[in-house]
Lab assay of single mutants.
Amino acid sequence: TQSIHIEKSDTAADTYGFSLSSVEEDGIRRLYVNSVKETGLASKKGLKAGDEILEINNRAADALNSSMLKDFLSQPSLGLLVRT
């Protein structure tokens, strides 16, 4: 696993530069990185398409609903625990 911390203040970007997809496997919801913008903040921090997001801001990914995800992604900083 890899811990990634991203700050939007690093650039004038209003997004982190990646998209997520939610997949249900064996009754457990998993979050995967769908795509990463080549010039985006997430790419600079090493996030890659296909990575599994285990935690966002110290909250287990399978416990997050879509409104919580939207809220986290609109925050000025983001902490991710990722399995590559």
Rank of each mutant, 00 (worst) to 15 (best):
residue 2 Q to N: 13
residue 2 Q to A: 05
residue 3 S to E: 15
residue 4 I to C: 00
residue 5 H to V: 09
residue 5 H to D: 05
residue 6 I to V: 06
residue 6 I to Q: 00
residue 8 K to M: 08
residue 8 K to W: 04
residue 8 K to Y: 00
residue 9 S to L: 01
residue 9 S to P: 10
residue 10 D to G: 11
residue 10 D to F: 04
residue 10 D to V: 05
residue 11 T to A: 13
residue 11 T to D: 15
residue 12 A to H: 14
residue 13 A to T: 14
residue 13 A to R: 12
residue 13 A to Q: 11
residue 13 A to C: 07
residue 14 D to V: 07
residue 14 D to H: 05
residue 14 D to P: 02
residue 15 T to Y: 08
residue 15 T to D: 15
residue 16 Y to C: 01
residue 16 Y to R: 01
residue 16 Y to G: 00
residue 16 Y to W: 14
residue 16 Y to I: 02
residue 17 G to L: 03
residue 17 G to N: 01
residue 17 G to F: 02
residue 18 F to G: 02
residue 18 F to P: 00
residue 19 S to Y: 04
residue 19 S to M: 06
residue 19 S to D: 14
residue 20 L to Q: 15
residue 23 V to D: 08
residue 23 V to K: 12
residue 23 V to L: 08
residue 23 V to S: 10
residue 23 V to Y: 09
residue 23 V to Q: 09
residue 23 V to H: 10
residue 24 E to C: 12
residue 24 E to N: 11
residue 25 E to M: 08
residue 26 D to Y: 13
residue 26 D to E: 13
residue 28 I to V: 13
residue 28 I to T: 13
residue 29 R to P: 07
residue 29 R to G: 05
residue 29 R to W: 05
residue 30 R to Q: 04
residue 30 R to H: 10
residue 31 L to F: 05
residue 32 Y to V: 09
residue 33 V to E: 02
residue 34 N to T: 11
residue 35 S to K: 10
residue 36 V to H: 09
residue 36 V to T: 02
residue 36 V to Y: 01
residue 36 V to Q: 00
residue 36 V to P: 00
residue 36 V to K: 02
residue 37 K to T: 13
residue 37 K to Y: 13
residue 38 E to Q: 13
residue 39 T to G: 15
residue 40 G to L: 02
residue 40 G to D: 00
residue 41 L to N: 04
residue 41 L to F: 01
residue 41 L to T: 05
residue 42 A to Y: 00
residue 42 A to F: 00
residue 42 A to W: 00
residue 43 S to D: 13
residue 43 S to A: 15
residue 44 K to V: 08
residue 44 K to L: 10
residue 44 K to D: 05
residue 45 K to I: 10
residue 46 G to S: 01
residue 47 L to D: 00
residue 49 A to D: 10
residue 49 A to G: 06
residue 49 A to F: 06
residue 49 A to T: 10
residue 50 G to I: 04
residue 50 G to M: 04
residue 51 D to P: 00
residue 51 D to R: 01
residue 51 D to E: 01
residue 51 D to K: 01
residue 52 E to D: 01
residue 52 E to Y: 02
residue 53 I to H: 01
residue 53 I to F: 01
residue 53 I to R: 01
residue 54 L to P: 01
residue 54 L to S: 02
residue 54 L to K: 04
residue 55 E to Q: 07
residue 57 N to Q: 05
residue 57 N to M: 01
residue 57 N to E: 06
residue 57 N to L: 00
residue 57 N to C: 04
residue 58 N to V: 05
residue 58 N to A: 05
residue 58 N to P: 07
residue 59 R to E: 13
residue 59 R to V: 15
residue 60 A to E: 14
residue 60 A to Q: 14
residue 60 A to T: 08
residue 60 A to M: 07
residue 61 A to T: 14
residue 61 A to S: 09
residue 62 D to Q: 11
residue 63 A to P: 02
residue 63 A to V: 11
residue 64 L to A: 05
residue 64 L to T: 10
residue 65 N to L: 01
residue 68 M to A: 11
residue 68 M to T: 15
residue 68 M to D: 11
residue 70 K to M: 08
residue 70 K to Y: 14
residue 71 D to Y: 10
residue 72 F to P: 02
residue 72 F to T: 06
residue 72 F to G: 04
residue 73 L to N: 05
residue 73 L to A: 07
residue 73 L to Y: 10
residue 74 S to C: 10
residue 74 S to D: 15
residue 74 S to E: 15
residue 75 Q to M: 13
residue 76 P to L: 03
residue 76 P to A: 11
residue 76 P to V: 04
residue 77 S to G: 05
residue 77 S to C: 12
residue 77 S to F: 09
residue 78 L to I: 15
residue 78 L to C: 04
residue 80 L to W: 04
residue 80 L to I: 03
residue 80 L to K: 06
residue 81 L to V: 11
residue 81 L to E: 10
residue 82 V to P: 05
residue 82 V to S: 07
residue 83 R to N: 09
